[in-house]
Amino acid sequence: MATTLPVKIEFSLPEGWKPAPPDEVGAPGVAFVALHPESHDGFTANITIAGKFREDLADLVTLAEESVQRLSEAATVRVAKRDQGGTPEAPALTQTLRLSGRLRGLPLELVQSQVYLTMQDVHDPAKRAVLEFALTAKSSQLDAVQDDFKAFIRSIRPAHP
């Protein structure tokens, strides 16, 4: 079942990307999905947004490892790259994963670029929202969608009431 984000954000989808209902495209547990119909080549490149409140002190590397473990339940996962960034007030982590699995019985190799952002709850500093943004595509599709994902990430901002 699709979820809602713990904080309100605004963003711009690059041209050519279309929103899709998470439950209808097989992405339960995420709040938002965008598809890139032009990239269809046995797999449609997609961007997903998920998030939740965390009251523990897990750092972003731990959260990224949790994602690797979760994905490992459905595919073979290899961490290709991981970088930390952001600011002390809003830390960020990016990681690139190589996924090997099967889709409709056929072998499928995917690349997933993930970006994790955290935001402290202004009313309760012990709580923080962790947002996960992911681009999933075949290696052959990456050149066509990678810059779009970067533009999408740059467009993300807190929503103002």
Results as ranks from 00 to 15, higher is better:
P21S: 13
V61D: 13
V79E: 14
T62A: 15
D83C: 05
V61G: 08
D56C: 03
T76S: 09
R82S: 14
K52C: 12
T44V: 14
W17K: 08
K52N: 14
A80D: 06
A50W: 01
E66V: 01
A80T: 03
E24D: 15
A74W: 05
G29D: 12
G26E: 07
A90T: 14
T87Y: 07
V61W: 00
S12A: 12
E66G: 12
E89S: 13
G16V: 09
V68S: 03
E66D: 13
P22W: 01
S39T: 15
S12Y: 03
I47Q: 01
A20H: 02
D41L: 04
A75I: 05
E15W: 03
L57T: 13
R82D: 13
D23E: 15
V7D: 07
V30G: 09
R78E: 14
T87D: 10
A31S: 14
F11V: 03
F32Q: 03
K8Q: 15
L63D: 12
R82M: 13
A27D: 05
T76K: 10
E66A: 10
W17S: 08
F32K: 03
I9W: 05
L57C: 11
V61P: 01
K8R: 11
F32H: 07
K81D: 14
E73D: 11
F32L: 04
R78D: 15
A27E: 15
V30K: 01
V77S: 04
V61K: 02
T62W: 02
T48K: 01
D59H: 06
G86Q: 09
P88K: 00
F53Q: 06
E55A: 11
E66Y: 00
A74Q: 11
A34Q: 03
G51E: 04
S39N: 04
V79L: 15
D41V: 00
G51H: 02
K52H: 14
V25Y: 02
V68H: 01
W17D: 08
K18L: 15
E10T: 10
Q69D: 14
L35S: 08
V7P: 06
D23K: 09
E55L: 12
A34G: 06
G85A: 06
V79F: 07
R70A: 13
K18S: 15
A50S: 15
E55I: 14
Q84K: 05
G85V: 05
E66R: 00
A90D: 12
Q84I: 08
F43E: 08
G85T: 08
R54W: 10
Q84L: 14
E10C: 11
P88E: 11
T48W: 00
A34E: 02
R78C: 13
A58L: 09
